[in-house]
Simulated scan of single mutants.
Amino acid sequence: MSAADVIAENVSWTPQRGSAPLLKPTSFHVQAGQVLGVVGPNGAGKSTLLRMIYRYYRPLTGQIRIAGEDIWSVPPRMAAQRVAAVLQEQASSFGLTVREVVTLGRTPHRAGFSTSGARDADIVARTIKQLHLQDFADRDLATLSGGERQRVMVARALAQEPQVLVLDEPTNHLDIRHQLEVLALIRQLDLTIIVSLHDLNMAAQTCDAILLLENGHTKGFGPPDQVLTEAQVSSAFRVDARRERLSPSDTRHFSFHLPT
């Protein structure tokens, strides 16, 4: 499948009807093939929004459309063919090899209890090669480093052949090199990508658009240089944020200080 537009129209969510929404009505439009970065302080509603996009939470209001169709109007198997997710929490390996974990990504494309076919095997092999996992393919997932495991989780998601890839803090707990590798991979994928990130400098460099959330409210949506301003970042994160250029050829980076 090719990348698809993602449109959220006034989506909100609450864990219990009658209680205050954790995410207030939120709207945005991500064009096919773009990378949307969802940023904001802890408790802003980032993970709640992502869970609605990959169909874990049903919106209290509004709808999320992928390629023009409400994701909650299609059967779960079809939704899993359109949206794949890589989460912060990595499940136990259960003794599975890397190849077996990546093969799990083909599950939404199999009918009933049918087994993997030649096409599935070809897609798994191609995905393993794309993510440079050939040397680990027959190793137990539990024996890999955090960065290697993250690549395997991305490979499993890509094996679903989705139109949209959702990544919830994909650089969390990774060292600097593996963070950069994951972000470089994001830019290479021919998919619509929605990713939550804590590092605002990484978000500004990686994403085509930014959605800034604070306490469940949308504080800004648009190109990074328009949303991630000193004033907006300082207000949302309650810090003194400054954009600085380390040298004339450098892109400006944020530095952060506690308010005096």
Rank of each mutant, 00 (worst) to 15 (best):
Q163T: 15
S114R: 13
G216H: 05
L197W: 05
H178D: 00
L200Y: 10
V154W: 01
Q226W: 03
D168E: 06
T127A: 03
S196D: 12
F221W: 07
H132L: 01
G147P: 15
L144D: 07
D122S: 12
R177P: 06
A121T: 12
R119C: 03
Q160E: 05
L165F: 10
E161V: 14
I123V: 09
V233S: 05
D138G: 09
Q130S: 10
L228E: 09
D135L: 08
L185A: 04
T218K: 09
L191K: 14
I176W: 12
T206N: 08
R139F: 11
G147I: 02
Q150P: 00
V233Y: 06
K129F: 02
I128H: 07
Q179P: 08
K129E: 14
L165T: 13
T206P: 01
A137S: 15
L191G: 10
P224N: 14
Q205L: 13
V195A: 12
I193M: 02
H178S: 06
A155K: 07
Q160F: 04
L180D: 02
L167M: 14
L141H: 11
V195S: 06
H178Y: 11
Q188W: 06
T192Y: 00
V124D: 07
D135G: 10
S116M: 00
V195N: 04
G117E: 06
R177I: 00
N201S: 12
G117K: 07
L213K: 11
D208S: 10
T171I: 12
A231P: 02
S114Y: 05
Q232L: 12
L212T: 08
A231N: 13
L174M: 11
A204T: 06
L165W: 05
Q226A: 09
K219A: 08
